[in-house]
Simulated scan of single mutants.
Amino acid sequence: MIGTISKNTVILSLFAIGTAATLAITNEATLSQVNCNKQQALSSSLAQVMPQDHHDRPLLSDRTTVNDPQLGRGDHHIYRAQLNGAPSGAVLEATAPDGYGGPINLIVGVDMDGQILGVRVVPPHNETPGLGDHIETKKSHWIFSFNGKSLGNPDNAGWAVKKDGGTFDSFTGATITPRAVVGAVHRALLYFQAHRDALFAAPADRIKAESCNG
């Protein structure tokens, strides 16, 4: 009896060890691809708010990290663009903390004069389907209304939804979401104006490069 129990225990132990080893090998084999997929998705998002003709090297190669309440709680990345060896703009991560369903993460592309080149919502978000989700490009063109805007266009009072006396449209039945996004974009512009020179003088983050060929 004791011999049988010991034998079964050894077999079960070996099976458990084999299963754990298999899972570890599988995880290691897929981790690199997962990271590559994330990197490619991020690169695609950055390209939507920083046109190719505004930079001549990968945006992912020059990133710095900041922590400032104007951009939201916690760390936010700034991707710096260069053209012909000179700074040409930046993509700022920003968070609207006051969305209807919770925080809304954004990326805001600007040129060196602080003019917006593009804004996108970074999924996921918890805004109401059919109402607040009109911040997504696949739902409406509303997010494109930021293109070409700056701190002087409109003026400070204009950086609000029309219901609050500003220039930006809201959504039928949903004002909280667009109000939150407009506020976050405005604060991102204020941050860039105040810290532009320091941002481009800051050292770049050390980023581990993934080999994503094939």
Rank of each mutant, 00 (worst) to 15 (best):
Q39R: 14
A184M: 00
A174H: 03
D75R: 06
H195T: 13
S170Q: 10
H55D: 00
A81G: 12
N126V: 00
A160M: 09
E93W: 04
H77A: 15
I11V: 15
N84W: 07
R120Y: 04
H76K: 14
H76N: 07
R179E: 10
D98C: 02
R80E: 06
S44A: 14
G99S: 02
C212F: 05
R73K: 12
N153G: 08
T64E: 06
R73W: 05
N8R: 13
T175M: 12
E93G: 06
W159Q: 00
K7L: 15
N27D: 13
I143S: 01
L106R: 02
G165W: 00
F146Q: 04
F15I: 15
S88P: 03
D62W: 10
Y79K: 00
S150F: 09
G118M: 01
V182W: 05
A90M: 08
N84Q: 12
P69I: 03
N67A: 14
T172L: 11
V10A: 15
Q52E: 10
P178Y: 02
I78L: 11
D56T: 05
K7F: 15
P97F: 11
R73C: 03
D62A: 13
N37D: 10
P51R: 03
A94P: 01
K7W: 02
N67T: 13
V34G: 01
P124E: 04
P51A: 09
K7T: 04
Q52V: 14
K138G: 12
R206W: 07
N84D: 10
Q193D: 15
P58F: 01
A96C: 11
A86C: 05
D133C: 12
G130W: 02
A157D: 06
Y100D: 06
D205F: 10
